[in-house]
């Protein structure tokens, strides 16, 4: 994040010639790492998430999402979500980590890591330029392959115990019983929602819905700002499915290329 701020500021000022210094500020959101969560000994995910969140704050993030301890087991329970929120509040209001800007600035080790990361990122940017820019690189599957390769290599490193995942491939406690409550969602949720949709569709002005969808398609086809017609669709109780079908009819659908 420290490296990202340097890169952003330089690119905005020098490459894109942004005149307003506020544009040189890189503001960003951080979410703790889903792939670090374990289904085994889920309580220890609280500790992982706290460390990751602290790193985000020390790096100067503007907003932060902390994962819940049970997300490798189910959609999060109210209890788990509350602990994730309290984790942020401890960092913000008890730890003092948010009292200064860039608390790690000047640490010889952090500065070196920042320099290294910045140089590595710059070499990626050169590579992307060589591929013809971001869109071309996506079409060629460059990003997709890089992300999947990293995920696969991480998984192999765990398998070979070159990397450790506490509670999974080291310090495991097989047979330990799960002692946290899990959120249960049964299929009645789907039934209730379908019933609600039916009621909504029966109770709205369907002529107005059709008009709002036609206006949306016209705007989409002419390349105009979609926000006003989208708001009009929402006011008429047009469903998300109807909106997305209308836009699909104009734009077509992204077909994912199998890069893995």
């Amino acid at each position: 994040m420290r490296a990202a701020r340097r890169i952003w500021a330089r690119a905005m000022r020098d490459k894109y010639k942004a005149k307003n210094p506020r544009s040189w500020l890189c503001r960003f959101h951080v979410q703790t790492a889903g792939c670090s969560l374990t289904a085994q000994q889920p309580e220890i995910n609280i500790v992982r998430t706290a460390l990751e969140a602290l790193a985000g704050v020390l790096g100067g993030c503007q907003s932060l999402h902390t994962n819940s301890m049970d997300e490798a087991l189910a959609l999060p329970s109210e209890k788990a979500v509350e602990i994730a929120l309290r984790t942020q509040q401890i960092i913000a209001f008890e730890s003092g980590a948010a009292n200064v800007i860039d608390p790690l600035g000047g640490s010889y080790y952090i500065e070196k890591l920042t320099d290294d990361l910045e140089a590595e990122a710059e070499s990626y940017f050169r590579k992307i330029d060589e591929l013809g820019g971001v869109v071309k690189a996506i079409e060629q599957g460059f990003f997709q392959r890089e992300i999947t390769r990293a995920a696969y290599e991480y998984q192999m490193a765990l398998s070979r115990r070159k990397k450790f995942h506490v509670g999974v491939n080291e310090f495991a406690n097989p047979g330990q019983k799960l002692e946290i409550p899990l959120l249960e969602i049964d299929e009645s949720v789907e039934r209730d929602h379908v019933a609600l949709l039916r009621r909504t569709k029966a109770g709205r002005d369907n002529g107005a819905v059709r008009d709002s969808l036609t206006a949306l398609k016209t705007a989409a086809a002419s390349g105009r700002n979609l926000m006003p017609p989208l708001l009009e669709c929402a006011r008429r109780y047009t469903t998300l499915g109807e909106i997305s079908d209308a836009l699909t009819a104009v734009f077509g659908k992204y077909r994912e290329q199998p890069f893995y």
């Binding site: 889903g34 792939c35 992300i147 999947t148 995920a151 696969y152 998984q155 199998p258 893995y260």
Partner: peptide
Amino acid sequence: GHDRGAKVVARALV
């Protein structure tokens, strides 16, 4: 949209 696991497994099967 969580496709990390699916892709890792796909690669392992290949």
